[in-house]
Each structure stands twice: as C-alpha cells, then as structure tokens.
Design a protein around this nucleic acid. Structure first.
Lengths: 255, 255
DNA sequence: TTAAACTATCACGTAACGAGAGAGTCAACA
DNA sequence: TGTTGACTCTCTCGTTACGTGATAGTTTAA
C-alpha cells in the first residue's frame, strides 16, 4: 500500500510542503516515486514519520531528529535528558524576562502618574539605589558606614535647585574635561581645573573631603567599566585622563 | 560629541554589525555621516539605543520595538501588557513540552528494560488504555459497564499466541478489504467475507456479539477520525467501505 | 610613510516551513 | 474523448536578527 503525498499529509495532519521539506533535507524520503516523479510513501515511511512528529512535538530541531531518529532507545534517552535541560533553561530565561517586564511596567506606570517633583524625588532615590547596588559594599569597606550614609542623606536632602546646580556643575566638568583632553597633558592648567571642578562636584554629596578618597574614587572610575562607560560617553577616553589629572591635582604624583 | 560606530558598539556592548543592522532596517540611523561615509552617532542616538536595548532584553522583536519606541509611556505600557501575555503563553507551552518529554522518557526507559514478554504485556495495557481514553465513556454509555470490562479482561487474559492470532486475523481482514474494495461493491462476496472476518476479529475481545453493536462500532469507525485514519492507512477509503459492507452483512440494509 | 585599526557595502547562512508561480499528471464526468 | 478539477512537481522569495567573511577604502598612531 503506497500513498501519494497528500494522503500522507492528511493522515499526519501536516502540510504537503512539510513533506517536501523533509525530503529536501533528507529527513524523510519516500520509498519510491512514480514515473512522473510523484512521491510514494510506504508503511515504513509512515511509521518513521510518526517518530519524527513525536520528537517535533518535543520541540527538537529537525537536525537533531535526523541524528537520533534511527538510534536505539538508549541514545534517544540521552538526547531527551539533554534536551529537557535545554527546555528548562529556556523556561528560566522566560521567567527572568517576566520579572524584568514587571519591573519595567511598574517603573513606567509610576512615571506616568508622577508630577515633576515626584520624578525628581524618584530620580534621587534611584541614584542612591544604583550607587548602593554597584558600590555599596566596596565603599562601606573602604570609607566606613558613616561616609556613605552621610552621602545618601545629603542627596536625599538636596533641593531641586541644589540638584540642578549639581547637574550644571557636572556639565561644566565635562566641557572642561573635553578641552583639557585636547591639550593631551593631565598636568595642564585646563586639566587641573577639571580636577578641581570634580572635587567641587563631589562636595555636593560628600560630607568630608580627603585626597586619598578622591584618588580612590578616580581609580575606581578607571577600574569599573560602568563608570568608564559613563565618563567615556561624555569625553572619549575621559576616564583615564581625569584620573591622571586628579592624581596630579592631589599631589600623589610629581609634576 | 559625535562617536564613530565602534565606540558606540563598545559602550553598549553590542556588535558593529548590530548597529549596521539597526541602520539597515531603519530602527536607529546615526545623526550624520562623515564625507567618507562613516556613521556618526549623537548623544540622542545613544539614548535611543538604550531604549531599544531595554526592549530587546524584554524579548521584543525589533519590528515592535520600532513601532513603540517613540510612543508615550501610556502606549508602551499597553504593549508591555500584551507582550507579557505572550511570554506567559510561551512558558505554558514549554511546561507542556516538559510534561510530554517526561512521559516519553518514562516510556522509553520502560521499554529498554523490558523483555519481549513484558513488552507484550505493556502493549496490551496500552491497547486497553488507548481504548478507554478514546472511547471509554462512549462505549460504557452505549453498551454498559459489563461489556467493556469483559473486553478489557479478555485482552489482559490473552496469551501471546492468542494475540498474534488476532494480529494475523487483522492482517487477513485488511488483505480481504483491499481486494474487496477493488470490486467497488460492498455487497460483493469479497466484501461480505471481509465483514465476517471483522466479526471474527472482534470476537477476540468481545464476550458477546450483537448486530447492533457491530453496526454501532462500524459507524463509530467512520465518525471518528482516529479510526478512519487507522483503517484508511491500511486500505484507502477502507473505513467507509467496511462500514457499508457491515451494514449489509448485519442485514440493516437491503441487498 | 607605512602598518594597524576602523569603516563601508555586499551577500550568503541560519530554522522550518508558508506562499505563490508556472507547468505537468491523473481521474472522473459529459 | 475532451475537458475540468484536484494533485503533483520544482523553483524561489520571505521570515528573524544578526554572524561571518570578502573586498576595498579611510583614519591614525608610531
């Protein structure tokens, strides 16, 4: 009993194109063909097709199906085990995506309802949060609990005017840094002005200043790619240049 | 501050090719280019890129990102809600696949350890199970509890010899049916022999025979695509032809 | 000035078919 | 016996989000 392609397709509830495709990639070729080139499938072909469709339902890629389809149960079990793990991995990935989506929604939902002032408050909190998340422990270890709590308190206490002054100051810093960078010399006047401006900017969130802490922060900027990205985004190669300027500014290096 | 492509790629931790691609599909084109055709990205471009990458992390297709990227939060929220459902749907799908994989593994694990006899026993159980799952309720309603329990018990009680006799009988039935089908007449001698053979085959699992039950089964074969597929798989259009033959055989239709 | 590092534009490959296009084949009906 | 309708065949493009060369021109640091 040999069948033509549509009959097979209807029995298996798949498309004729799918059978064409399986033939093309050598996954399932009909036992024979008519003189006019029509594909003719045998019983054995049908059974093979059932197997193929079983694995397809399990989300196996056709390539792997082709590999394992004719192997004994033993090997198929191994493939199944491995495949199961891949599916689990995919599911974990989706779970993560869901979490991120929820966060994003919460965030955007918040934003839509906020007044300008609320957005400003939220922005400050986010600044603190980000800082804590990224550097919290490190800074606490280096400079002690008090330093960081003071900093956080200072940020929270900032008025919108203060905050905008701080942003303005940062902008000036970057302008200065860009010009200074063109001199190519971190000891240049412009570069030293930039270092001073950086200190000034810092004081908006630091309660006390020490040369050591200033240098430590500069080194941290260079070592951490997040900071590097942020500074380099403003001025190309700005991070290293600023670090060098600060080193000189704080007198840690001879001029 | 305009950046060349590699700088942007490094900042965003994506490939240059990706930026080329985004330009190609009009998702993110650089603000300007140099005389020699180098792409130059502005700050605004970078911010847009951040947004794009955020949605990309949420597993949005680029096409949708392009649609919603410049819309207000309100619309983005809507898109997020819908997208969330799609992700949930995907996860449910994966859960289903996992269940099927587990079943398949259990099945194959069983098979590998079985002796021929055990496989035979398992095969009989599967036959009963399949039957129950597909027709259990319907048959119970039509023919009563007893009929089906008897049938199941009879199958369980079959020896391997019995079973193979039954399979052999079925084979003969199909041979007969194929020849009969060629006559085109369900009242033909061959067709009537096939109907008789079908009754004989039935008796392997039925404890009592009635013309009504026999006709009922034949109608069920035709009505149910699973049975149709099974019979038509052996003999093209065999189901209907057998049904007609049985109708005549049981005398429900005038010859 | 020369080599290294960048940049640009094709264009093919990937997974699993769907959707035509154009042309030949087969079976039944008038 | 001719015709029609249902099938069949073999291309070939489209889909997603880039990766991976190939080939060639540009910029930049030593």
């Amino acid at each position: 009993m040999l069948r033509k392609i549509k009959e097979v397709a209807d029995l298996a509830r798949i498309s004729v194109r799918t059978l064409h495709h399986y033939d093309e990639i050598g996954l399932l070729s009909p036992e024979t063909t008519t003189d006019s080139g029509y594909r003719l499938y045998s019983e054995a072909d049908l059974e093979m097709l059932q197997q193929i469709l079983l694995f397809r339902e399990l989300d196996f890629p056709l390539k792997k199906i082709k590999e394992i389809i004719s192997k004994p149960n033993f090997d198929q079990l191994e493939a199944l085990t491995q495949h199961r793990n891949e599916i689990l991995e995919k599911r974990r990935y989706l779970d993560q995506v869901l979490i991120t989506i929820d966060k994003t929604m919460k965030h955007k939902r918040g934003e839509s309802h906020m007044t300008t002032e609320e957005k400003f408050e939220a922005f400050k909190e986010k600044m603190i949060e980000d800082n804590e998340e990224t550097y919290g422990e490190e800074i606490r270890e280096k400079y002690g609990e008090e330093t960081i709590e003071n900093s956080n308190a200072k940020i929270r206490g900032m008025s919108q005017v203060d905050y905008q002054a701080m942003v303005q100051l940062e902008k000036e810093l970057f302008d200065l840094l860009e010009k200074a960078y063109q001199t190519g010399d971190p000891a240049s006047d412009l570069a030293q002005q930039a270092a001073a401006k950086h200190k000034e900017w810092l004081m908006y969130s630091w309660s006390t200043y020490s040369k050591e802490a200033h240098v430590g922060l500069a080194e941290m900027y260079v070592a951490d790619e997040r900071f590097t990205a942020y500074y380099d985004k403003q001025v190309k190669n700005g991070t290293r240049f600023l670090r060098d300027a600060i080193l000189i500014f704080t007198g840690q290096e001879s001029v």
